[in-house]
Design a protein around this nucleic acid. Structure first.
Length: 578
RNA sequence: CGGAGCGUGGCGCAGCAUGGUAGCGCACCUGCUUUGGGAGCAGGGGGUCGUCGGUUCGAAUCCGACCGCUCCGACCA
């Protein structure tokens, strides 16, 4: 394709509303344009890369035995009421009515539709297992879309759904999808981690996220360099420290004045203690009651785990949040910053790390005072110990004890083992060998196709622009013609261009009437992996310059060999990603 | 939803305090020159100043409402 005829509107300056590098470069490189908040046009170059990402995904899904379908984007409310998500999903679900006042939504996900399809056609265990997928435009009315394609409202997603006769078989389907996702991430050239994840609202017994490592990622993950354990911090388990306290060392509890020392840091400074000698008391509101949560001073709470721990301890916690300042005052009798477990009338849940602590510092439930030399059991009762803190870099791996690494990640894929959550509520039943009705066991598997485009750019760029990995570059070769008025140069470029096109190489030729500086800058910005430069200087010596976008040096090729050499190198580069 | 900011030609911005009918850079069009890292000169086209309403002789500028976009937080996952 000739750049002079192509719709690739590049820009010299960053768009004012872009924050992260992928958003800036995709807009500047002429890949995408914003239409409304969280809604984007895909321009020709952007769409080509999207289709290449889709192609990789299709190949791996098909290879794993899944079959592609295309489901409606517009879905009747009736199905969502069956699964109870019409009410449960909240304002993120874009709802509207048709001319007859029928209620519909624009699909944010397709569990209901797929379950409806399958329950109507699959009646026997002989028809299972089944795995159907589609690549669809979804809409979620996110409260705060941001970072360009990374968190859009309208986005492209591959979603797959597996149906099995029993949980073990469903687990096998899950494992197959997990493996397919690994191959997809490998082929896209990602540096990534498959991490244990919280299932959240989708439900199900367990799930993994595929996180592409990037500083701009919205998720925090920890991973073990030794045994491979990896998890989203929302889910990450911490290693339990079973060291015993030595009760002989207990010292008598005292109350000390700590004027204006509210934060952990202030108390540490005032008492000349380190944060791991303090225990902080967080007051939570769980549904209709208050609960005290004890954490070591230098630890943070993981609210997902707090919720689990409370439910484990028999405390309803559908709606969990930190108590307000007024509530804290009411429960503890003291202002924020001086809460402590001693004398509290509400349930006390403590992190496991508190077990081995002795003679620690806590708030005294009165203004400007703390207790020192406090010991649990002797000075107050703990209703339950649990793993409730957020894992962080340096923590001992829950599996093997090696210090964990921490990264930020972009969630490009998520696999869930759903079980019978939807099949039961929507009556997707089959007849087993004994002629009995049983709910199908399901799994669902998502990949953010458009988000992948952003993730690739986040991981592959420099100051000048994008550096596409070969398999998803919109084109494989970028020919820059410096002197379009010079017939010898132009003929040489045309000839090589034709030979590459004939050989099936995807190539753009910059034949625009523009300055060479602008052409080089655009080539770097657009980021096509292999560049050929045709200029009067080189051609007069019988040479063409070849340069990889990810390398700094170029090399001269004899004009006669140029096409063959480029075909060979492109082929070689594609092999690395198969 | 709470907090903050922005909205002026395709893009990036100035002008607004102190009201007098809109400007700069890039991009675009024409011509000439130039040609290995965002060329030069000359000429030229293009703007309901987000929308509606108010104040005023007069509003981009002051006031109000609304709309849109961005950031921080909450929410969501």
């Amino acid at each position: 394709m000739r750049l002079s005829r192509m719709f690739v509107p590049t820009r010299k300056e960053d768009p004012a509303d872009a924050e992260v590098v992928s958003h800036k470069l995709l807009v500047r490189g002429g890949y995408i344009r914003q239409l409304a908040r969280g809604i984007y046009d895909y321009l020709p170059m952007g769409w080509r890369s999207i289709r290449k990402i889709e192609a990789v995904i299709r190949e791996e899904m098909d290879r794993s035995g899944a079959q592609e379908v295309m489901l409606p984007a517009v879905q009747p409310a009736k199905l969502w009421k069956e699964s109870d998500r019409w009410d449960a999903y909240g304002p993120e679900l874009l709802r509207f009515t048709d001319r007859k006042d029928g209620e519909f939504c624009f699909g944010p996900t397709h569990e209901e539709v797929i379950t409806d399809l399958v329950r109507g056609e699959i009646k026997s265990y002989k028809q299972l297992p089944l795995n159907l997928y589609q690549i669809q435009t979804k809409f979620r009315d996110e409260i705060r879309p941001r970072f360009g394609l990374m968190r859009g409202r309208e986005f492209i997603m591959k979603d797959a759904y597996s149906f099995d006769t029993n949980l073990e078989a469903a687990k096998e389907s899950y494992d197959q999808m997990f493996a397919a996702y690994q191959r997809i991430c490998d082929r896209l050239g990602f540096e990534y981690r498959a991490v244990e994840a919280d299932t959240g609202n989708i439900g199900g017994s367990h799930s993994h996220e595929f996180q592409v490592l990037a500083d701009t990622g919205e998720d925090q993950i920890v991973s073990c360099p030794e045994c491979g354990y990896a998890a989203n911090v929302e889910k990450a388990r911490t290693r339990r420290d079973d060291t015993d306290r030595t009760e002989d060392d207990f010292v008598a509890m005292e109350t000390v004045d700590t004027p204006n020392a509210r934060t952990i840091q202030e108390v540490c400074d005032f008492l000349d203690r380190s944060a791991d000698e303090l225990v902080k008391t967080l007051i939570y509101r769980a549904d209709d009651t208050h609960v005290a949560l004890l954490l070591r001073g230098d630890h943070g709470a993981n609210e997902v785990k707090v919720g689990d721990a409370l439910r484990e301890a028999g405390i309803e916690a559908d709606d969990l949040r930190l108590a307000t300042d007024d509530e804290i005052k009411e429960v503890t009798g003291a202002p924020v910053g001086f809460s402590g477990p001693v004398g509290l009338e509400i349930p006390v849940v403590a992190d496991h790390s508190i077990r081995s602590m002795s003679n620690f510092v806590v708030g005294a439930n009165e203004a400007d005072a703390h207790h020192v030399n406090v010991n649990w059991d002797r000075d107050f009762e703990v209703d339950a110990f649990a793993d409730v803190r957020e894992a962080r870099a340096g923590d001992a791996c829950a599996e093997c004890g090696t210090p964990l690494e921490s990264h930020r990640g972009i969630e490009v894929g998520h696999v869930f083992l759903l079980g019978d959550k939807y099949s039961t509520s929507m009556e997707a039943l089959f007849l087993d060998e004994d002629g009995k009705h049983r709910p199908m066991q399901m799994g669902c598997y998502g990949i953010g196709v458009s988000r992948i485009l952003a993730a690739v750019v986040e991981q592959n760029h420099d100051d000048d622009g994008i550096i596409w990995p070969m398999p998803i570059a919109p084109y494989q070769v970028h020919i820059t013609v410096l002197h379009i008025d010079n017939d010898e140069v132009m003929d040489a470029a045309e000839s090589v261009y034709d030979r590459l096109v004939d050989a099936g190489v995807e190539v753009v030729m910059d034949d625009r009437d523009a300055g060479f500086g602008a052409k080089f800058a655009d080539a770097d910005l657009i980021g096509i992996p292999l560049r050929l430069v045709f200029g009067a200087r080189g051609i007069s010596n019988g040479n063409v310059e070849m340069k990889w976008r990810h390398e700094s040096d170029s090399q001269d090729l004899p004009l006669d060999d140029a096409a063959d050499e480029v075909i060979r190198q492109v082929d070689e580069a594609m092999k690395d990603f198969r």
